[in-house]
Simulated scan of single mutants.
Amino acid sequence: MDMDLDSALRRLAEQPLHPRLAELEGDVMRLIAAEQRAGSGVTLRAGMLAAVGAVALGVVGGGLSSAAAPAQMPTLTPFGPAAPLAPSTLLALQ
């Protein structure tokens, strides 16, 4: 099928517009507004539920991880005040 795009577009431009085309924008805007009114309560409730669930999950997860942690063992820090294996403390013992 050999079709010249320019001539096809020219024929399309010469055709009269559909009568409902002028009302299309208003119809779309009315549908969008109706959808926003209908869904605003649901969206807000879902967002609040997600926020409360996230906070609860964080609190429970934080509580479980701190409860499952073993008793704090002394750490060996080279510059900290309590360094029992530091060379200066080992030399002082001899």
Results as ranks from 00 to 15, higher is better:
14 E>H: 03
45 R>Y: 03
93 L>V: 13
13 A>H: 10
90 L>A: 04
21 L>N: 01
11 R>D: 10
93 L>N: 00
3 M>E: 09
20 R>H: 08
16 P>K: 05
48 M>F: 08
9 L>R: 02
94 Q>R: 07
39 G>D: 08
59 V>N: 02
54 A>T: 10
70 P>D: 04
44 L>R: 09
13 A>M: 11
71 A>P: 13
8 A>L: 14
20 R>F: 09
64 L>Y: 10
89 T>S: 09
14 E>P: 02
22 A>V: 09
4 D>H: 10
5 L>D: 03
11 R>T: 12
47 G>P: 00
33 A>C: 04
93 L>W: 10
64 L>K: 05
27 D>P: 01
24 L>I: 02
59 V>A: 15
88 S>K: 04
46 A>K: 02
10 R>F: 12
35 E>G: 08
79 F>H: 11
33 A>V: 10
52 V>S: 08
21 L>D: 03
19 P>M: 02
17 L>V: 07
75 T>I: 14
16 P>H: 10
58 G>I: 05
42 V>W: 07
88 S>G: 06
59 V>I: 15
36 Q>R: 13
33 A>Q: 09
87 P>Q: 03
38 A>W: 07
19 P>K: 04
32 I>L: 13
54 A>L: 12
77 T>F: 15
88 S>F: 14
15 Q>R: 12
91 L>P: 00
18 H>P: 02
68 A>G: 12
73 M>C: 09
63 G>H: 08
45 R>H: 07
37 R>C: 09
63 G>C: 06
49 L>R: 09
57 L>H: 01
46 A>P: 00
70 P>C: 03
19 P>F: 12
55 V>G: 03
7 S>R: 01
92 A>E: 12
35 E>P: 00
60 V>Q: 02
65 S>H: 11
73 M>I: 08
71 A>I: 10
84 P>F: 11
76 L>E: 14
86 A>V: 01
30 R>V: 06
77 T>W: 15
48 M>P: 00
88 S>W: 15
70 P>K: 02
59 V>P: 04
77 T>C: 15
66 S>I: 14
68 A>R: 08
50 A>P: 00
53 G>D: 07
63 G>W: 11
3 M>I: 15
70 P>Q: 04
15 Q>A: 15
74 P>R: 14
72 Q>M: 11
